[in-house]
Design a protein around this nucleic acid. Structure first.
Length: 568
RNA sequence: CGGGGUGUAGCGCAGCCUGGUAGCGCAACUGCUUUGGGAGCAGUGGGUCGGGAGUUCGAAUCUCUCCACCCCGACCA
């Protein structure tokens, strides 16, 4: 492609409404343009990247035995009524009527449609298993679309649905999809983790989310240094400390801590580590009472874990200041477990603490050298209520946990019979009896993958495409070609040769200054750059520079194609 | 939906408080010069100041109202 025929539409200034780096770069590099909230036009350069992703996904899905289908975006209400989701789904499901007043919706997903298709097309167990997939536009009227392509209302998704006569077959396909997803994200050149996911209300046996690791990710993920264990931080279990509790060597003392309220202030004031403190949080119980939660000073409460415990109100809410004063006799900041006469849930780590510091239930007073059993009753309700932190033991007993942020780009799920039962999708089994099919579903956010890739691969100059995603592999930049016939001839020849050799080349034949070309090509993230200049041609040389290189390398003109082949 | 904020040229912004000729930078277009890291000079075009209503002799500016968009919370690929 020539830039004279393939406009790059780059912009120098960062758009004001783009918050995260991928959104800014996708607009600056001319991949997308916003049409309305959560709706984007894809420009030619963006479409090239989209197609790269789609091609890889298609190849791996086909390799895994899945069959491509294509289902409508507009879906009849009847099917959603059959599955019960017409009522369940809220405003996120966009509903509309046709000219006859019949009800339809814009598909946020396609379980209903595929189940309808399968129950008509699949009659016998002999046809199973079967795995259908499509690459199709979805529409979800998100409460708050944000982060550009990352969470838009309209987006492109690869969704697959498998049908089986038994659980074993489902597990086989699930495992195959798990592998295919690993292949896909590996080929895309992304640093990712398959993460154990909650099967939630839909049920089923297993579910994994695939997360691309990036600091801007919306989810925090804990994974083991030594094993395959990985889970959303919200779900990751914090094990009890393995080492025994320390000796009660210090004596109990009440100390004045005027004005020192937070754990940070207390530990600075007393010159101790935060983990030597215990903090006591008062939360509302589920029957108009108040419950104390005790955690180590360096740990954070995991609200999701806490609100699942019996007695704790869900959703979790903190006790009011009035209740705190009435029950503890002091302000928040000086609450402690000693002498508190309400139900108390103690975190596993806090229960192992010895010689700790805690509030004295008296303003401006703390206890030091506190020990369970000696100074207050041994905790009778110990539970896991904290957020895991980096360095914790992995719940599977192997290695320690590392915490990273992730962007969910894929999700595989054993659905079971939720839809097939509601919609009566059955086959005849070997006994000639009707049998409900078991289902799995497998999604990849195609458009989100692109944003995630940019979040993970960029620098201050722009995008750094992984090889598989780059819209062009090679940028061919002649310096002031319009002034030199010799340079023009050499550039045109090399351009032809590169195409002949199978490279996707962007040939910058614009009459612009060199710096302009460099900046554009770096912004749009082309992995390999060849610069041709009169100076180099005198010696039969061209310059090569990879996108992340800091130095140019002179390469003889006749060797450049081989040089590129070695690097691609 | 709750809370906060912004709408002025394609993009980024000033002007608004204190009403009186609509501005700056970038981009675009023309010409000349320049040409190895987003050039310089000169010139040109481009605006119902988000929409509507009101106050006023006069509204980008004050008032009311509607709309759009962005940010923080509950959802998800």
């Amino acid at each position: 492609m020539r830039t004279s025929q393939f406009p790059l539409n780059t912009v120098k200034e960062t758009p004001a409404d783009a918050e995260i780096i991928s959104h800014q770069l996708m607009i600056r590099a001319g991949l997308v343009r916003k049409l309305a909230a959560g709706l984007y036009n894809w420009l030619p350069l963006g479409v090239k990247v989209l197609q790269k992703v789609q091609t890889i996904v298609r190849e791996e899905m086909n390799n895994a035995g899945a069959l491509e289908v294509l289902m409508p975006v507009v879906q009849p209400a009847e099917l959603w009524q059959e599955s019960g989701r017409w009522e369940q789904y809220g405003a996120e499901l966009t509903r509309l009527n046709d000219r006859h007043g019949r009800e339809f919706c814009l598909g946020p997903t396609h379980e209903e449609i595929i189940t309808e298709l399968a129950r008509n097309e699949i009659k016998s167990y002999k046809q199973l298993p079967l795995n259908y997939y499509q690459i199709q536009t979805k529409f979800r009227d998100e409460i708050r679309p944000r982060f550009g392509i990352m969470r838009s209302r309209e987006f492109i998704m690869k969704d697959a649905y498998s049908f089986h006569s038994d659980e074993e077959s489902l597990q086989q396909t699930y495992d195959r999809m798990y592998l295919a997803y690993n292949n896909i994200f590996n080929r895309l050149g992304l640093d990712f983790r398959p993460v154990l996911a909650d099967t939630g209300s839909i049920g089923g046996n297993a579910s994994h989310e695939f997360h691309v690791l990036a600091d801007s990710g919306e989810d925090a993920i804990a994974f083991s240094t030594d094993s395959q264990y990985a889970a959303n931080v919200e779900k990751a279990e914090a094990l009890a400390p393995s080492e025994p509790r320390g000796e009660a060597s210090e004596t109990l003392q009440k100390v004045s801590t005027v004005g020192q309220r937070s754990i940070e202030e207390i530990s600075n004031f007393l010159n101790i580590q935060p983990q030597q403190c215990l903090k006591t949080l008062l939360v509302n119980g589920d029957e108009d009472n108040v419950i104390a939660l005790v955690l180590r000073g360096d740990h954070q409460l995991n609200e999701i874990k806490a609100e699942k415990l019996a007695g704790v109100a869900s959703p979790l809410t903190l006790a009011s200041d009035d209740d705190i004063k009435r029950i503890a006799g002091c302000n928040a900041g000086y609450i402690g477990p000693i002498g508190l006469d309400i139900p108390m849930i103690v975190d596993r780590s806090a229960a192992q603490a010895a010689n700790f510091v805690c509030g004295a239930n008296e303003n401006d007073q703390h206890f030091t050298g506190v020990n369970w059993l000696r100074d207050l009753a041994e905790a009778d309700h110990i539970a896991d209520i904290r957020q895991v932190v980096a360095g914790d033991k992995s719940p599977d007993g192997q290695g320690t946990l590392t915490i990273a942020r992730g962007i969910e780009v894929g999700h595989i799920f054993q659905l079971g019979t939720k839809y097939s039962e509601a919609m009566k999708a059955s086959v005849l089994n070997e006994q000639g009896k009707n049998q409900t099919m078991t289902m799995g579903c497998y999604g990849i956010g195609i458009t989100r993958v692109i944003a995630a890739a940019i979040e993970q691969h960029h620098d201050d100059k722009g995008i750094i495409w992984p090889a598989a995603l780059a819209p062009f592999q090679v940028a061919l930049l002649p310096m002031n070609m319009h002034k030199s016939e010799r340079l023009k001839a050499a550039s045109e020849t090399l351009y032809e040769q590169l195409i002949e050799a199978g490279f996707e080349v962007i040939f910058d034949d614009r009459k612009v200054r060199p710096g302009f070309m460099f900046s554009d090509m770096e912004l749009i993230g082309i992995p390999h750059r060849i610069v041709l200049g009169d100076r180099g041609l005198d010696n039969g040389m061209v310059e090569y520079r990879g996108r992340t290189d800091t130095e140019n390398v002179d390469i003889p003109l006749q060797d450049i194609i081989q040089h590129l082949k070695d690097r691609c």
